[in-house]
Design a protein around this nucleic acid. Structure first.
Lengths: 210, 210
DNA sequence: TAGATTGTTAATCGATTAACAATC
DNA sequence: TAGATTGTTAATCGATTAACAATC
């Protein structure tokens, strides 16, 4: 279909940032912007802005620039934020709790429909209105509900067991906070990793070598 | 000094991953590995492994390969994980709590020495043995203690005020969980961003366009 | 020594930037 | 129309991969 056949990850990873800056401009009731000005604000080159946007279509108007509100909506659609992907969260520890409580899933194209934990202590507690279920109910829940993606907030050593179960139910999209290498086990999965400790190590390196 | 004059961010961001895989191999008591085998395990090319490592020195031995334990230690040193950088955490909400409780700072070159929050409800509670202080004590604390870096787990709108304060005390390294653009305000800061919602949006895009 | 594997140079590939014709 | 700014092609830059001589 049309242009977005094989957009590079470099471009894809910049999209949320465009979306954020455009949302801000829109909130400030600015209705037009040129690639040059947007680039200035975002601290990138105007060429990059135009190249990136043109991966998806000609959203601008020569001699004028881009309509902020229109471009913002375009990117929202490109990202797919109007979706309502059903997500479940595995692991209601500190990290899982933070993910459940902190994120505005609705604005990101997701709906969190259930949380699971294997710790009896946590079962029954509520996260953003969702009662934490016992992990033993996971299979049953997967059978009875359509699930698009799983957010894994469990320790590395626990992932394989849970992953095998989820994969057997056809779940192939993962937001993974552990260091378990999901793709190595199932190469047809779509995995977005968040490696907090890698990020902190990178900061450490840079502090050493500034 | 020597080789690591201007290592590209691409290489730097791969270092934690090397460190992880080497640590694992070491735990399995494997004592030698070739670039080819390591590349296989990590799903990259052997060329990249050798190029990356040679940015920092010739750690291998021709005809033999690399000593796992030695290479692991080398990378640990390159990353600077033996440091004891003093860090403070701003924001003891769900995210801040998760960061404080979940991370093994000691193994990452940091020591968390204080937490602050402006919410009276949170002040006095304990995170991993550290009592949450009132944000009003921040200035005083900065005056009396050496601080290398701040972890910002506060909402975007709260960052500017806190940042100005921290920067005035000479703190220039930040682990930033908000969408506030620290570098735009102070361009001599070292910032490592964690943008959870950007990550989730990227997953959303990829789910739409698999 | 012969075999293996590194360190490093050269070739390729992809991403970013510059330039400019098209056009509003 | 003249001025501005896009969309797009071409040039540059950097990162990845391949090749191979050095050497353990």
């Amino acid at each position: 279909m049309s242009k977005n056949d094989s957009i590079s990850m470099s471009v894809i990873r910049r999209l949320p940032r465009y979306y954020r800056f455009l949302s801000e401009l829109n909130d400030q009731n600015i209705d037009k912007i040129s690639s040059t000005k947007l680039a200035q604000i975002m601290n990138v080159t105007a060429s990059q802005v135009r190249q990136d946007l043109n991966c998806f279509g000609g959203f601008g108007q020569q001699g004028y620039g881009y309509s902020v509100s229109q471009l913002k909506e375009e990117i929202k659609n490109i990202l797919g934020l109007n979706n309502d992907y059903k997500a479940i969260l595995i692991g209601a520890g500190n990290l899982g709790k933070a993910v459940a409580m902190h994120m505005n899933f609705e604005k990101l194209g997701f709906e969190l429909i259930a949380c699971f934990d294997n710790n009896e202590q946590k079962v029954g507690s509520k996260l953003n209105g969702i009662t934490v279920k016992n992990e033993s109910e996971l299979d049953d829940f997967c059978n009875k509900n359509h699930i698009d993606t799983a957010f894994l907030c469990i320790p590395r050593v626990c992932v394989e067991n849970v992953l095998d179960k989820l994969y057997s139910h056809g779940i192939k999209n993962y937001w993974n906070f552990s260091h378990y290498d999901i793709n190595a086990r199932y190469n047809d999965t779509m995995v977005e990793n968040v490696h907090l400790s890698d990020s902190l190590m990178t900061l450490c390196y840079r502090m050493n070598n500034n």
